[in-house]
Amino acid sequence: MSASQSAVRSRAEAVKVSRTFDYLILWTVFMVLIGGYHIHYMLTGGDWDFWTDWKDRRLWVTVAPIVSITFPAAVQACLWARYRLPFGATICVLGLLLGEWINRYLNFWGWTYFPVNFCFPSNLMPGAILLDVILMLSNSFTLTAVLGGMAWGLVFYPGNWPIIAPFHIPIEYNGMMFTLADLQGYHYVRTGTPEYIRMVEKGTLRTFGKDVAPVSAFFSAFVSILIYFLWHFFGNWFSQTRFVQST
């Protein structure tokens, strides 16, 4: 390879080449992230995400943010540090939601006929935007972990409430009270998910009264901060360009 030779004929071509690589890289990163993030999320928080009758005010609120802040933290670590690109979290969530929606529509509904209003995914977008903006404005991973991680956990439930509230209306059915979400779970038969598998709030002798969702969100926010730190370092590790020598 001769250093004196140029790979491109002109500056205009260099710009065009660089731009073409942008699209190729974005496509690939986006697709790989959908694959990786989706498999991670579906197997760590998937059941809460699949069904409305799992979307409760305690465990869903706790688990979903904690397990979903992982990939955003890692991708932010790379895209911000190396490119000053503040969309690491958003692109992850765009990917995840796209993967989920395609699946819920074409397979949950299109293959096995569960109504879409029973199996729509959780909304993670508000947290992602906040996480990205906080990183961009603060230019600090520490602040992003603390403030962004906190925001990620806290905003999850209010960000989803307008979507799930209609399914929490009570109904009397054959002499028992259900929410509409419970009734969906009962009506739309799942041979592989008997009711006892459901991990939802069943009540305790706690003293917090009915403020379960805020307490859960707060706890989730706390753990999200810790997970953000951890996954920031994962992101750094995965960003390395090191070669190892074959023996």
Partner: peptide, 28 residues
Amino acid sequence: WIWLSCYGWALYWGGSYFTEQDGTWHQT
């Protein structure tokens, strides 16, 4: 990058599409 684009695409189908799809088939 053509190869990598195809890899990303294939990973999407495997990791996302067909893996989550399995979850709903097990309900039938």
